[in-house]
Design a protein around this nucleic acid. Structure first.
Lengths: 252, 252
DNA sequence: GTGTTTATCGTCAGGCAGACGACTATGATC
DNA sequence: GATCATAGTCGTCTGCCTGACGATAAACAC
């Protein structure tokens, strides 16, 4: 198959970001409001073109930094929590997914601790954290009375895929700690699982599981009472990335 | 961010295929020999350009049919085994991965039963099934005395990612049946797991596990002795796609 | 028949998870 | 200060699943 430059159609390649965080007991995603057609005024996932000299992961990290100020966690510095988790999610290339031209989008999934406030070029009204159920639900009205319109393009599908990836991945990996601040309690970690899965977990069994898994949590020695009640031990994420055996989400 | 056509660089988009099968107790991948530079004469994964009006999955299915004659299993006809399993794997877009131009490749993973013989445009010498260890190993000589050169482009990485995906996915899904003919025995299925994981499994525990998982296997009523020894029951793949609890590969 | 191969059924002990009781240590309220 | 509410932590018990492995069954080769 010769690589005749006239033999292949040109594509635009973008990265789209599913940025997830946990706020007020709910799994939330970052959404930005589109400023121009198509889908003008509708909410969409943040994203942008891949530049000529950029790798896909670089482009995703750049977009993430532009939208949130987050830096990407460097796997070479495991002990230091220096940013968000970022991984490639999937690629979407339906010929009609963008009405103007042929665009292939490489979606990425980012997991971040709760952040102060989104910034999209400094305009806060054009970026927000929204519960994923609200973004995926069609029709009706959001918490602020705004009518719920589906996300632009195929972004509802991308978001759904990203949420499902996150939900399944925290089962067998230590990725849930990416939603937590550098130091956190077992209860805070449990509330992350509960928000992502949308279920209630038994605090005692959860405590036994996460503290009994070698390398998952490392006690820092400190305690906190920021959640009220009895002071809780503080932990950092340990070096283990895979949980074996996994923590399976309850069925139904 | 305006979609000014002059604002984004044009990309070529290809699909590359990791086609896996099990032959003679070994996990094998389809490799094709490159006919022109770069990497002329080297082995590579099959693949090709995505056409202007094609979805990514369509392009991958078309390439798979061109290279192997396989049709893709239609999920809408679960009971009928009408082809191979095909899923998107990951996307590779390093700016230097192709020395000629900017190419983004959307890799797909295909799992197929053992096939008669590969065909690459009718020329058998330019396509072959090779054990994945041989394709991933650098230096030395293959079984036929041919010197082992690394796969072209970043295809060794793509192959490694595809193999790891297959190895982990048969843990928690019924996907291993995609390596089997429409009717198969428990022993044949076990040999698939053994080949993919490269380990030996206890036949008794394996039998208990797969026959005890509801919806995994459906007895057809027939038996066969094609493996020698006592006749074995024949099964088809059941409707279940997820195994819960999973069948974990033995550690180390 | 004897030996070999493969399939299939059973048994047993250990590990792990779900259900849940009990106790501890803080802040809030009266 | 006593009481209450809240959250954290330690145990116990039971049932399920798995790994290790014995035993039997049904074919073929000689």
């Amino acid at each position: 198959m010769p690589y005749d430059p006239s033999a292949f159609p040109p594509f635009a390649v973008t990265v789209d970001l599913v940025v997830l965080t946990v706020r007020r007991h709910a799994l939330c995603a970052l959404a930005v409001r589109r400023g121009e057609p198509p889908f003008q005024g509708r909410w969409a996932l943040p994203g942008g073109f891949v530049r000529a000299d950029e790798d896909l992961a670089q482009a995703a990290a750049r977009e993430l930094a532009e939208e949130t100020g987050l830096r990407v966690h460097d796997p070479a510095v495991p002990a230091q929590d220096n940013g968000a988790h970022l991984e490639q999610l999937a690629t979407y290339g339906d010929p009609k997914r963008d009405p103007r031209m042929r665009v292939v989008s490489v979606a990425h999934l980012a997991l971040a601790p709760d952040l102060p406030a989104p910034r999209a070029g400094g305009d806060a009204s054009n970026a927000r954290w929204a519960p994923v159920e609200e973004l995926l639900q069609q029709g009706g009205y959001g918490r602020d009375g705004e009518p719920l319109a589906p996300l632009a393009f195929d972004h509802a599908q991308i978001l759904a895929d990203g949420v499902e990836r996150a939900r399944s991945k925290i089962e067998y990996s230590s990725l849930a700690t990416a939603f937590c601040p550098p130091e956190f309690t077992v209860g805070e970690l449990r509330r992350v699982y509960e928000a992502v899965w949308g279920v209630a977990l038994d605090p005692r069994n959860f405590h036994r599981k996460v503290t009994g898994t070698p390398g998952f949590l490392v006690p820092t020695g400190g305690t906190t009472t920021r959640q009220g009640g009895r002071p809780a031990q503080l932990f950092r994420a340990g070096g283990a990335t895979l949980l074996n055996p996994p923590m399976l989400r309850p069925e139904v």
